[in-house]
Amino acid sequence: MMSVVDLAPVVPVVVIEDADDAVPLARALVAGGLPAIEVTLRTPAALEAIRAIAAEVPEAVVGAGTVVSAANVTGASAAGARFLVSPGWTESLLDAMRASGVPFLPGVSTTSEVVALLERGVPEMKFFPAEAAGGVAYLKSLSGPLPQARFCPTGGVTLASAPSYLALPNVGCVGGTWMLPKAALEAKDWGRVEALAREAAALG
C-alpha cells in the first residue's frame, strides 16, 4: 500500500468553499511541486472538489482530511480520495479506514495513542494539533522509545517551522496551510499559490 508520509515533504491542507476552485487550485499546487493534496471535509463542497480533482488533475494525489466517521470514509473513497486523514481515531473509525483499502493517517497527540496504533499494525500517523500538542520537542522525544512510528505533523506548522519538523528522523512530511493564504484564494490568484507551493516544495 502507498505510504502517505512519503508522497511529498509538504502536504497542503485545503479548505474549499467553492468546488469550481478545486481544479485550478490543484493545478497550481501540482505545478509548484506539491502533488499530494488533502481536501478537508469541512465544507459542503469538499466531496465535489475531491471528485473534480481526481477526474481532471490526474497528476495530483488527492486525499480527504477531517475524516471523523465511517460515512466520511465511504463518501471520500467514492469521490476518488487516494488517502484519508483523521484528526483523531476510534476503533470503529480505524476499522472503517482499514476496510476502505485506501491508505490512511489516523491522528494522534499522545504517546498512548501512538502505542495503541503500533499495536494494531499502523506505523504511520498524523500528529495533530502539532504545535499545541508539543511540536518538534515532543516528536523528538518520541523517536527514542518509538522509532518505528512515522508522523505527518499538522496544525500550526509554518514555512519557518517546517524544516525543524522535517529534520526529525520520525517525520516523513508536514501538513500545512501557509501556501494557501485566504486573500489569494478569495482573489483566485493561482499564480501566488503556485509560487508559495514551489517555496514549500523546496523544503524537501
Rank of each mutant, 00 (worst) to 15 (best):
V174M: 05
R120D: 03
D20Q: 15
V102D: 02
D21N: 08
G32N: 06
T177L: 03
K140M: 13
L185S: 06
L34H: 06
F127Y: 15
G176W: 12
A55V: 05
G88P: 05
L168R: 01
L139K: 01
L203S: 10
G156C: 01
E199Q: 15
L168F: 05
K188R: 15
G135K: 04
G204P: 04
G175F: 00
M97T: 04
V30K: 00
E124C: 06
P123F: 09
A200R: 01
F127I: 10
G135P: 03
E113Q: 14
A46D: 02
G135E: 03
L203V: 03
A28Y: 06
S112M: 14
R51D: 14
P145L: 12
L29M: 05
V67F: 11
S109P: 14
S3I: 13
M2E: 14
A184G: 11
S77F: 04
I16D: 08
L196I: 01
T66L: 08
S92H: 14
A133W: 04
V171L: 00
V114F: 05
V174L: 10
A132M: 10
A19D: 13
A195W: 05
T90G: 07
V193E: 09
A31W: 12
E124F: 07
M2F: 14
P106F: 01
G204M: 00
A187R: 11
P153N: 07
A133P: 04
V122R: 08
S164T: 10
P181Q: 08
K140H: 15
S69E: 02
W190M: 02
A96R: 02
D21S: 07
M179F: 06
V39F: 09
P123S: 14
A137S: 11
V114D: 02
A81V: 14
F83D: 00
M125P: 07
S69F: 05
M97W: 09
R27V: 03
W190R: 01
R120C: 10
A202L: 06
A116D: 15
R192N: 13
A197T: 01
G204Q: 11
E199H: 13
E59C: 11
R27C: 06
L41D: 12
A130S: 13
V115H: 08
A201Q: 02
P58S: 13
A71I: 14
A201T: 03
G191E: 08
P123L: 13
A130E: 11
E48C: 10
E48I: 09
A187C: 10
E56N: 07
S86T: 09
A28N: 01
W89L: 07
R198N: 07
S86V: 04
A149R: 10
A137N: 03
A45T: 00
E91F: 14
A71N: 14
A22M: 07
A54P: 06
A162I: 00
F104K: 09
I50D: 00
V14Y: 02
P106E: 00
G121H: 01
V122A: 13
A78M: 12
P147T: 04
L146M: 13
A160P: 03
M1P: 12
A132H: 09
L180D: 09
I53C: 05
A116N: 14
G204C: 06
A162G: 04
V108G: 03
P9F: 00
P169I: 07
L41V: 02
G65L: 12
A149D: 02
Y138W: 15
P44R: 08
S69I: 04
T66P: 05
A81S: 09
E124H: 11
G172H: 05
S3F: 14
V10R: 04
Q148H: 15
